[in-house]
């Protein structure tokens, strides 16, 4: 099944500040059960509704998110 977009999170650098989640229009982002090496609950995708808008990536203070959007055909 084709998807509209997705994100990759550099989980070891994520500080779990959740700003990405507050700006996501599709409630795609949630938090891990386990912490990363720094002790933060890092951002993860919790569903496949991502539209690749990049909002989360541009607001992330630590630049840990890379955002992808399905290429137009």
């Amino acid at each position: 099944m084709e998807i509209k977009g997705y994100i990759e999170v550099d989980i070891q650098k994520c500080k779990g500040c959740q700003l990405c989640a507050t700006v996501c229009p599709k409630a795609v982002i949630g938090y891990s059960d386990k912490t990363n090496d720094k002790g933060y609950y890092y951002a993860i995708m919790v569903n496949e509704d991502c539209i690749g808008c990049g909002n989360c990536a541009i607001v992330c203070p630590d630049s840990v998110i890379t955002a992808y959007r399905a290429a137009k055909k």
Binding site: K13, G52, C53, P61, D62, V64, A70, A71
Partner: peptide, 30 residues
């Protein structure tokens, strides 16, 4: 990825590799 084409909407710019020391959620990093 998985046979589908994606545009990179946003990726980390050419900052140095160091982790920023700013507190979680602080917009200094932005």
């Amino acid at each position: 990825k998985n046979g589908q084409e994606f545009d990179v909407v946003w990726k980390k710019p050419n900052l140095q590799k160091n982790d920023m020391h700013y507190c979680p959620g602080c917009a200094h990093g932005t």
